[in-house]
Design a protein around this nucleic acid. Structure first.
Lengths: 348, 348
DNA sequence: GAGCGCCGTTGAAGCGCTTCGACACATCTC
DNA sequence: GAGATGTGTCGAAGCGCTTCAACGGCGCTC
């Protein structure tokens, strides 16, 4: 492996000069800089990551912790991870992938060893085991998702309360007064992941304001579970004219079942989904939906964490990189699955 | 941060002794070892990753390169990644996540900087851009997937040829003689990812041997695309009694459409899927399927790569860690979607 | 034209760890 | 009991980089 010293010798300068060319932390004459850059290219030099980390106490690595919950919709997790990785790379950082396997201890290990300069935590629970460790860690962290207590923490998430409200708003405009919510699997609520509850909260709030009724039922992703859920909904509230779905895996089965039952979408029943755009557009009926901005969430998380890293390295706390919560505004796209509420049976 | 030197002082021994306690590369008396371990615990010591990497030229990091092709089924990719991460962790290594963003250059960067001790490449194409760099890299690598030329390379993959054969075998036993294959999106074939072609190859081979006819059509994951594909299949081969599907996203739409068309599964038409177990079991009809052993693939890849790392570090080339291809045997699970071929129209 | 400041460059001191050779001491062997 | 062998510990030399203090030379100013 080529070392900095060899580049220096080859270019006829000192090692420190090469280092400064690389980092740009000191002015170097154009003449010298070009000579050094030429040597770097000719020798195929790559700075040694370990040496760099040791000397600068910066690894240029961000740890991404993602517990692998089987009840989460995987493509969204993946899209966030990809967004984190690419954004980090654009900013000269690499991403270390940590799974839930290791438990909260991973935080201590990664921070303690200086392996990563910062952390991004996904799939945060309301009472997350990792939070105490994160709070006392001497490295910056950003959460994707909202815990119960956000004090001293920086979080990014979709504004699920606003999402719920927006869904109801849209349906109410079409005259729907009896709305069902097909939610995530029961396990998600029991685990108190927050986002599912927050959506329902928004839905309930807005429905109350507008005088609409809401029936909420959790639902697994399977066809069978969906069949049961739908049956229960129409049994308890035969007048239901609209459904809000927040379980990506349940969407396909639901549309399939509605069709089977002779319920036309949107003529007999309107459907609003809370899901990635791709899922919304690939169904038999293009779905009116609120998108999960997975890419945006990953990107923002990296930007926030990088700002923290830079703030910690340089001046005291000049920029506003302190703890705060960033809620991404929901965006509802109207497609073909929502329409006017059918007039009540018996009316013209 | 606590350093090795501080631990040594606290325990009343030299730094090297602490190092040997940590690595176990030299015998240490029980008395001394316990004293050192106690100090480590009391001080909350974590070895500095950078320093370690520098001194030992081992980072204990494995790079996982996964290009983000939108036409690949994401959950499988994710499961592989998770398996890689957890298996690596069990063996004392961390995983660096690299996306396709950076291109083949990423190989050079990671290897050149000594950031990773080895690489695992996912989603390998027949003529993969990364292969030349991998071949000349001084670090071990394992591919998940098969390129056209596997010489000098170590690869892990499901045996897709055998998979195709096995599907046909199963259907033939039930008397099916007219089999359709609903394949991946056309882009997958154009990209020459190999696995899709290999499946068809196996299907064709075995069908020829058994005297069955095969009709192969690529298909996108959307409902519309599936509708078109099915229509074409039944138009060209009205006598089709069985379908093999190899596009996870297309499965839901397909079952939904078949039902709509009044074709009962498995009475009128048998369906075999090549997909993860979870997908097979969550449909309206539990599907007879060949599983994609994503977890196993990730695990084996790590095991192979670790064997290479150890072989490179220690002796010359004692163990059999040389280049070779490891094909995982397919496993077909019979569920409710396959049955006897219906007797031809007109027959009793 | 002496003095000042600035720019570009350098040498040297670590960063925290691994590892090699050496050494002190205890244990055998004949 | 002298020499051969083994065991447990230590000191010191790096690993390849960053960064600080310092320095030589240049163009200014007054």
């Amino acid at each position: 492996m080529v070392t900095l010293a060899e580049v220096a010798r080859h270019a006829g300068v000192s090692a420190s000069t090469v280092s400064y060319v690389l980092s740009g932390k000191r002015t170097i004459s154009t003449r010298t800089r070009e000579r050094v850059e030429k040597s770097i290219r000719e020798l195929g030099y790559h700075p040694n990551a370990g040496a760099r980390a040791l000397a600068s106490s910066k690894s240029n690595i961000i740890a991404l912790m993602m517990p692998l919950r089987t009840d989460m919709y995987v493509p969204v997790m993946m899209e966030i991870a990809i967004a984190v990785a690419t954004t980090a790379r654009e900013r000269g950082h690499d991403v270390l992938l940590l799974t839930g396997q290791e438990g909260p201890e991973a935080v201590r290990r990664v921070v303690g060893s200086g392996l990563a300069d910062a952390m991004i935590l996904m799939d945060v629970e309301l009472q997350d085991q990792r939070l105490p460790l994160v709070r006392e860690a001497p490295r910056p962290a950003v959460l994707i998702g909202l815990p119960a207590d956000t004090s001293d923490l920086t979080c990014v998430d979709l504004d699920f309360v606003a999402t719920g409200r927006q869904c109801v708003d849209h349906l109410a405009e079409f005259g729907h007064r009896d709305i069902a919510v097909v939610g995530e699997a029961a396990a998600v609520y029991e685990r108190h992941t927050g986002f599912a509850e927050r959506t329902i909260l928004g839905v309930r709030e807005r429905a109350a304001e507008l005088g609409a009724r809401v029936l909420h039922r959790p639902c697994e992703g399977s066809y069978e579970s969906m069949a049961g859920t739908l049956a229960r909904i129409f049994d308890e509230r035969p007048g239901t004219t609209a459904v809000i779905v927040q379980n990506e895996a349940a969407i396909g089965p639901m549309l399939s079942l509605l069709r089977q039952q002779g319920r036309a979408v949107p003529e007999d029943i309107s459907v609003v989904a809370i899901c990635p755009e791709q899922v919304a557009t690939q169904q038999s009926v293009a779905l009116t939906s609120v998108a999960i901005p997975a890419h945006e969430m990953g990107r923002r998380a990296v930007e926030l964490v990088m700002a923290k890293i830079e703030a910690a390295g340089g001046n005291g706390a000049a920029e506003a990189t302190g703890p705060h919560t960033e809620m991404l505004p929901p965006q509802l796209t109207v497609r073909a699955s929502t329409g006017p509420a059918p007039s009540p049976t018996g009316a013209p």
